[in-house]
Amino acid sequence: MKRDYAEIFFNSLARLVTYSITAVIAYIIFDIVRNGIGVISWEFLSGFPSNGGAKGGILPAIVGTVYLSLGAIIVALPLGVASAIYLTEYGKQGKFNEMIRLAIVTLAGVPSIVFGLFGLGLFVLFFDFGSSILAGSLTLALMILPTIIVTSEEALRAVPRSYREGSLALGATQWTTIRTNVLPYALPGMLTGSILGIGRAAGETAPILLTVAAFFLPRLPDSVFDQVMALPYHLYILATQHPEIELVRPMQYGTALVLLVIVLAFNLGAIVLRSRFQRKIKSQH
């Protein structure tokens, strides 16, 4: 019976470890909600900052984050979906494909600050977009591209081969088959990827640090060549660079809460969507 004690001990230890992780997560979220909720008001969400961010609202930062994430997804989604279609539906082997796969893995591993450097070199300086929404969105787009490709590929692979064969056997061309009998069923899965991508783009700081983010800019942008504020950068500035860090603590928590809610909403949405999609795929077989 001694063995059983060992198992009980080990299971309890593993359980303790796992739940301590979840406890930390819960505590982070709880702390930010508790301290941030009091700050949230219509004025905070829809007002412009004043006094270097010590007073007023965070509207420009919210708008900036929305623009940047939307810009990133508008570029990355078509590119990512097209790449995934190419990788799964056309030539599955060969040197070129291996090269693409290696590139995707490499891209996924590039640190976000290096994306920032790259965006600075290519978009801001070489293409002369300046520090702008355009440069920031394009940088973020490249950063989330691997996520979108990988999730789209998964979604395409989940579509049974028999749908493709059935369609081809009726004389459909490959593209017709993909368009009418594969993509419609992969769409929910692809949506998951793009939502995850938006969430990631919204929460990133390092890439926009060097390509777009404005320290303090209490107005809304007029064009894609304007600089904007962004929530993550705003939080960073308030928390570390502000002359009166203790004084602006409520503003920090408020900003953190808004950012957290936006990003987690996207993540939760993706998780829910994915589990539904998986269930649907399962029920079809």
Partner: peptide, 30 residues
């Protein structure tokens, strides 16, 4: 038409490769 579509998809897929190359290139350039 099929060929054009395939070419378009392939071009999109090569963006990843080009990006990686450009990242190295521009880090060295700067």
């Amino acid at each position: 038409k099929e060929k054009a579509i395939k070419f378009g998809l392939m071009s999109s897929a090569s963006v990843s490769v080009i990006s990686v190359a450009l990242i190295f290139l521009f880090l060295f350039k700067e």
